[in-house]
Amino acid sequence: MIAYLTRRVVLAAITIWAITAVTFIILKLPPVDFVDAYVAQASSTGSSISAAEADALRAAYGLNESYLVQYTKWLSLVASGDFGRSFEYGRPVTEVIGDRLWLTVLLSLGAIVVTWTMALPIGIYSAVRQYSWGDYIFTFVGFIGLAVPSFLLALIVMYFGLRLFNMSVGGLFSSDFALAPWSWAKLWDLMKHLPVPMLILALPGIAQLVRIMRANLLDELRRPYVMTARARGLAERKVIMKYPVRAAMNPFASTIGYLLPYTVSGSIIISIVLSLPTVGPLLLRSLIAQDMLLASTIILMLGIMTVIGTLLSDLLLMWIDPRIRLGQLK
């Protein structure tokens, strides 16, 4: 168990290091380095940056030195929490990302919770009542959920929300609260806006996990240990919930790893359609504007989130599967 844990943590650390290297390469990809881009941007908008300021920036990032020195300087700045300035917004990167980060996390976690709470019971039902009407209906809806692009779904929901209920489903805040400081009223306003985007974000994941759960559980239901549990007089419902469902849970735990970053990067289009103030649209804009310090920060965050998510799902797997805990499976 200790060996498994250590291996996972060491692998995670190595992966994070590799992600910083790739992020640095992305940061250096544009032909014009970011300080020159900043100066050009400033002059085009009428303001100007003094030569001294530009030189100070170049010195801080070591832009006139070797790539290795540049990488080290950038990494130590990032490690100390200094992500630099966004030239597009003219503000520090941390400030630009600001609230968007935890709104994104809130939305993502919400979507994951919705995904699980919907997919688990539907998947179990579909497997236990295979080829029943309910199973066929869920299968049909599930395939539609998989096939329809979520942004289209978002548009449809918005249209009907507006036409039928006269409500605006875009954004996470009403216009009164969007720029207001935090208060209970603003929090309540956020709560009212969350469910629709959460559901839209969750839908493809639900459809996918229902299929996975159904297939896994169908496999497990045929295993002899299910028959043994029945043979000792355990009630059918308990038989299913305690044994095969437990065994079919493994893929659920594994999905956290990719669900976390998916809800950020995979949801850019949905976020734009629903004008959600999350990190996704920011990433797209920063890439278009070649606002590299902002873009690289977001990419770095996404990468680290994936690693943390995978590590979490590994820990969860270890908790639910004794074969992993006791080193039977590698």
Binding site: P224, Y225, M227, T228, R246, I320, D321, P322, R323
Partner: peptide, 11 residues
């Protein structure tokens, strides 16, 4: 049952 491996839950 005949299969003692798979007739017991591994979990």
């Amino acid at each position: 049952f005949q299969e003692p491996m798979s007739s017991l839950s591994a979990f």
